[in-house]
Design a protein around this nucleic acid. Structure first.
Lengths: 205, 205
DNA sequence: AATTCAATGTGACAAATGTCATTAATCGCC
DNA sequence: GGCGATTAATGACATTTGTCACATTGAATT
């Protein structure tokens, strides 16, 4: 029987190498390519359709292109390759966005490597594989923030002043304060810093 | 020739499993035990001296006991086992503390897995192995913060108000503001948030 | 006992932030 | 054209934060 053909995308080289090695040890799996970011993986899959990639296994937070963007693009292009997300973060916002992009599997780096192998097989056979931790709590509410609020919060998180944020977003300082205020209000935070923390934890930034 | 005997400490199970597998594939290496945090590794090494562990390979940020604490303890107890740190973060503060605890190797998870294997052998032979990225920039200045400043900053980072921080540290609000102000001043930050970010990036929190 | 020193606290003021009501401009839509 | 919805801006005011000069306290040193 043909092996399951896999592309990896993961920016931690150590983990990328290690995963490639252990997956290749399985005799029903074959790692066709290892990529350091989503862009590389997307290019490879789209420009080499003859490679018939079954599974794209990807981290989320990576430079250049995140795993969520990768999944979104593949979905748009109606690629036959199925995406499995492998990430550190159990953030409900991430899971939701992944689901919206037709992702078939979502695992945490906390789980044992055997789970990953099981998930790959399961997804290849047409199933789904979602880490149980995620089903439990965090399917809940969806991102309440507007685009502007999100952008302002992202900058505020690093300690930028209202003025600086306003300059960067081409808005007036007052408007920025309004956005940050309403964001904090939506998130039940006492100030912009707490708001940024909450949004970040939920994968909304 | 006897294999190099290794204990692993890493809280990401996926990476822990994967590392154990690829290191065991090398015929001069042997992974004796895999631990999910520093405490487990410390216990194992100290209570089983007959195991003659050559290398303790550990992550830094882990629950229960960090890799830096583990290294410190082993150093205190004059253990013969040599410690290699494997971490995501190239923070000068971490490297400095590691060195102070007699650590022999400090690698980044960004490097290829072969580097790790090389480093293990090199350290076992009595050498050192420090990721080149670290030698370059960040050996520089040392932590300028006082204990109080550090504590206050740590709380401010999550968005706590001056009042709340004061309550938690059993100080007056004014004192807390003084500490945060002087911390921001030392770090050339414009406010507490930026100060916290800088301190965090340098491994001083 | 007098002196030094560090840690903590206070008060006063400036600057930044949070909150809210209101207005203006723009766009889609009937 | 008129209507509601969205987006941006403004002004006013309260609260929080940043800065600094200056007590107060207590422990350590002389």
């Amino acid at each position: 029987m043909a092996k399951i053909r896999i592309v990896l995308a993961e920016d931690q080289t150590m983990l990328l190498n290690a995963l490639a090695t252990i997956l290749d040890l399985e005799d029903n799996l074959e790692v066709v390519k290892s990529c350091a970011n989503g862009k590389q993986a997307l290019d490879f899959v789209l420009t080499n359709p003859e490679q018939k990639i079954d599974i794209v296994l990807t981290d989320i937070e990576m430079p250049d292109m995140t795993g969520l963007e990768l999944a979104h693009e593949l979905h748009q292009q109606k690629s036959a390759s199925k995406v499995i997300i492998l990430t550190t973060f159990s953030r409900s916002g991430y899971l939701r966005r992944a689901m919206d992009s037709g992702v078939k599997g979502y695992l945490l780096k906390d789980s044992p490597s055997q789970d990953l192998i099981d998930a790959i097989v399961k997804v290849h056979q047409g199933g789904r594989a979602i880490a149980p931790e995620l089903m439990v709590d965090s399917w809940m509410e969806k991102d309440p923030l507007s685009e502007k609020e999100r952008h302002a919060l992202r900058l505020a998180k690093d300690g930028m002043s209202t003025e600086d944020i306003a300059a960067k977003l081409f808005l007036s300082a007052g408007t920025v304060r309004n956005y940050l205020s309403s964001a904090a209000n939506k998130l039940n935070a006492k100030n912009r810093v707490e708001a940024a923390r909450i949004a970040h934890q939920n994968g909304w930034l």
